[in-house]
Design a protein around this nucleic acid. Structure first.
Lengths: 106, 106
DNA sequence: TCCTCACATCCAAAAAATTAGATATGTATA
DNA sequence: TATACATATCTAATTTTTTGGATGTGAGGA
């Protein structure tokens, strides 16, 4: 079953920001702590926290507390889920719009 | 090669809005004219035009003029491209962050 | 040509997202 | 316990996005 438009918007909104896309790029293949990301991006700590919350709430990023530090990493299954949402955009699952033929590409 | 963060943000931003997600849902499998979408969504014509421009500029939707009407449809290759962008979020292509091992899921 | 229709664009107001300093919370260390 | 540190949350200001009426454009039809 497809999630609600609210849930989808939450996920894609997390991806719709240049800073957050850079953060995801920094998390490729490796876990990183907040201060590390903050230094690389040269943004205030409160701003980093704001963006990390959006990324975590979307399910695209995991967070893990270790003592004083918070480590972030890519949530692979969250990313696959999001990719799947886009892949199904062109597909008709239940039979919409009065059984018209599917559109051809260009 | 990966597109710029600006280009990625443009694409995901198009998907990050409830109205635009509903529009994409309406275009599943069939082409629709602007007035048709406007009536279904119950929004002013200028607002619909605004959202359709964002969707077209992102490459997710095609537009076709036929006389007085403009028909919109899903751009399948645009959607596949966008899905691919998400799929590659967890993958390391060039070897980033000092050769650390890739993170495991959860 | 004049008129109407479908749609795009313009513009100012409203709403939402982002920023960054201040403050709060939780953890380790002395 | 007192302190320092890392991060989360709060808050107001700023920026960006969205809205919707007004206007412009281009395509038919009379």
């Amino acid at each position: 079953m497809q999630p609600s438009v609210e849930k989808k918007a939450l996920i894609f909104n997390a991806l719709a920001d240049k800073k957050r896309l850079r953060i995801l790029g920094m998390l490729k293949g490796c876990e990183r702590c907040a201060c590390d990301i903050k230094d690389d991006l040269c943004i205030p700590q409160s701003s980093l926290s704001y963006h990390m919350k959006i990324l975590c709430d979307s399910g695209l990023v995991n967070s893990r507390r270790d003592g004083k530090w918070t480590y972030y990493s890519i949530n692979r299954s969250g990313c696959l889920f999001a990719a799947g949402l886009i892949e199904t955009i062109p597909t008709v699952e239940g039979g919409c719009c009065s059984d018209k033929k599917e559109t051809v590409d260009e």
